[in-house]
């Protein structure tokens, strides 16, 4: 990773941070409804891994905390914001919402709301990749608590059994909503749980994007070279509540402060400043530009876009005019 890459990534992560903060504001203004799960604190996980992979080429799938993953895959942030606003111009045409961002053109294969649901879907995509003979890989980003679902174990077993090209990224933020990992999980270090499936696995700091990138590079190379699945555990922390309805009473001030000092943006920024690759003034300018882009470009687009038409309520339940519904093309 050279200095230019690092600066670009700092900008991308800062954009993600400001984007999510603006989602929060829109929610407080009641412009965005439903569930909203935000990403601040965990940015280095998504950006570090995807920097080592090929965004828009590799297939990415994740849970409900999905805005930033879609954007990193290539989704237009305007379309992501418009989806939160439930507009027809949203990337899922206002039918999905915050938890169901889809952008198949950029191979972002969706956000799913059932904890553990994406595991087998990712393995299935890997099966399809293998059948078709492409050099893509499937990447499944999920949380730590998802690993207590049966689908985790079923999917690891099948991925290893059939040597499928899938990278499992566990963003271990130590909590499933308000339950701390040691209160829900017998073996808290997630990478250790994978050894029963003979899948190579590692655990690294998820707050330092360079560390994430370097480990992810190995993981991605392993999977892409046809050696089968890999499990990468990233130790991280979410700075906000689980969702908007979170009381956030289950974490101590101490803990929050300790992790607050390990802000992925701060870590990268201070490193660049120390190396004289970046000045504080430059950073402030960057931040201003991003906020301007969000306010002048993204928010007005979402606000002014039309809602889906009510007479199209039943569109997309089934395909239209599928000949086989009538017994084949005659």
């Amino acid at each position: 990773m050279n200095a230019a890459d690092k600066k670009r990534l700092l900008r991308e992560m800062l954009f993600a941070r400001r984007f999510e903060e603006r989602c929060y504001e829109a929610y407080m203004e009641r412009k965005v409804g439903g569930f909203l799960h935000l990403y601040p604190g965990q940015e280095a996980c998504c950006f570090g891994v995807m920097e080592a992979a090929r965004p828009g080429h590799d297939y990415v799938i994740t849970g409900y905390r999905d805005h930033v993953h879609a954007i990193k895959c290539g989704s237009d942030p305007k379309a992501v914001m418009a989806e939160l606003y439930a507009k027809e111009t949203g990337c899922s045409k206002g039918r999905g919402g915050s938890m169901h961002i889809f952008d198949v053109k950029h191979r972002f294969m969706g956000g799913y709301a059932l904890v553990g649901g994406p595991f087998p879907l990712a393995v299935g995509m890997a099966k399809a990749i293998k059948m078709k003979g492409g050099d893509e890989i499937a990447i499944c980003f999920l949380g730590d608590a998802a690993n207590n679902q049966g689908t985790f174990h079923e999917s690891l077993n099948m991925a290893a059994l059939w040597k499928l090209p899938v990278l499992f990224v566990c963003e271990n933020n130590l909590y499933g909503i308000g339950t701390r990992i040691d209160r829900s999980t017998a073996v808290t270090e997630q990478y250790k749980r994978v050894c029963g499936y003979d899948i190579p696995a590692s655990q690294v700091d998820g707050q330092d994007i360079e560390v994430v990138y370097n480990e992810a590079k190995k993981a991605v190379d392993h999977v892409r070279s046809g050696k089968g699945p890999y499990f990468l555990e990233l130790m991280t922390y979410r700075f906000r509540g689980h969702s908007m309805s979170d009381s956030n009473k289950y974490r101590s001030k101490d803990e929050e402060e300790t992790w607050g000092k390990r802000d992925p943006l701060y870590i990268l920024k201070s490193r660049l400043i120390a190396a004289k690759e970046l000045s504080e003034a430059e950073y402030q300018k960057l931040d201003k530009e991003i906020i301007e882009q969000i306010e002048k470009d993204i928010i007005p687009f979402a606000e002014s876009s039309p809602e889906p038409k009510v007479d199209e309520l039943t569109k997309y339940v089934f395909g239209e005019n599928d000949p086989y519904v009538r017994g084949g093309a005659r």
Binding site: I61, L121, G124, M125, I129, A138
Partner: peptide, 11 residues
């Protein structure tokens, strides 16, 4: 779920 995921990509 594996079958469903594979079907996303044309299987």
């Amino acid at each position: 779920g594996l079958g469903i995921g594979a079907s996303f990509l044309g299987v």
